[in-house]
């Protein structure tokens, strides 16, 4: 579903590449954790996958599409298939919850449809938002103002938005970085269930190795822009996940 081959990314005015020769493969329904110190290239990798930063060498293929060749409408079509969940603060807090959830559909809606929805959402669209919120366990918040929700609830709204997008790849960038341990486990469990249930390729960056071991099928270590290991959880021991600085 997601295939990366010898990817190198350079930022202008920086001597060292942010990513160098990174290769990996994530199948549909597979749950992969990405671990490593901050500045190791995790966020850059996500930005490269959805075409936000150009690659200097190598290739990223999502489904049948080569990311480097997608521009304009083709790039938007590609992004529609990749849902991104970031570490909070990526919701528009002044909108109602259902509006934030259905923003996941903006990629397939026409501009006119989007404007009409803002003014007068129809029953079917509200039903879709409700179903997505029900799946993440906060259906009762459908019409609340997003800023009135707690951090954990907002993260659930972000996940519901990703569901509405009907993606084939789900990228989660430190989805539990600002949540307490109990909430963190609930959110990760939810993400992993959804990936299995809908056959999504899930790539999730984390900085707690124990969580990676508990919920994911495979763990990839990224340090100084390079893949330092890529193994199924069964072959890993907790001690091997410590990085030399």
């Amino acid at each position: 579903m997601l295939e990366i081959e010898a990817l190198t990314v350079r930022y202008p005015n920086q001597p060292k590449p942010a990513l160098e020769g990174v290769s990996m493969r994530v199948e549909g329904g597979e749950r992969v954790a990405l671990v490593g110190p901050s500045g190791g290239g995790k966020t850059t990798l996500f930005r490269a996958i959805n075409g936000s930063v150009p690659s200097a060498a190598g290739a990223i293929v999502v489904g049948e599409t080569l990311v480097a060749q997608a521009h304009g409408a083709a790039l938007r079509a590609l992004r529609r298939r990749i849902a991104v969940i970031a570490q909070m603060h990526d919701l528009v807090d002044r909108l109602a919850v259902y509006q934030n959830v259905m923003a996941g559909a903006l990629g397939r809606w026409s501009s006119l449809h989007a404007l009409r929805f803002l003014i007068h959402p129809n029953r079917r669209e509200l039903g879709e938002a409700h179903a997505a919120l029900e799946r993440v366990g906060i259906a009762e918040k459908l019409r609340s103002r997003t800023s009135d929700l707690s951090g954990g609830q907002q993260q659930r709204v972000a996940i519901a938005r990703a569901l509405v997008q009907r993606p084939s790849v789900l990228l989660a960038d430190e989805p539990v970085a600002s949540l307490d341990p109990v909430l963190s486990e609930q959110i990760l469990q939810l993400l992993c269930e959804l990936a299995r249930e809908r056959g999504l390729a899930l790539l999730c960056s984390l900085h707690q190795p124990q969580l990676a071991m508990r919920y994911f099928d495979r763990v990839i270590g990224l340090q100084h822009g390079r893949v330092v290991f890529d193994r199924p959880v069964a072959q890993l021991e907790a001690g091997t996940l410590v990085f030399a600085s």
Partner: peptide, 16 residues
């Protein structure tokens, strides 16, 4: 940026 990442066009991005 999160809206742009869903593949939204410019007008919906402004409105939402």
């Amino acid at each position: 940026e999160a809206l742009a990442a869903t593949g939204a066009g410019r007008l919906p991005m402004v409105a939402f």
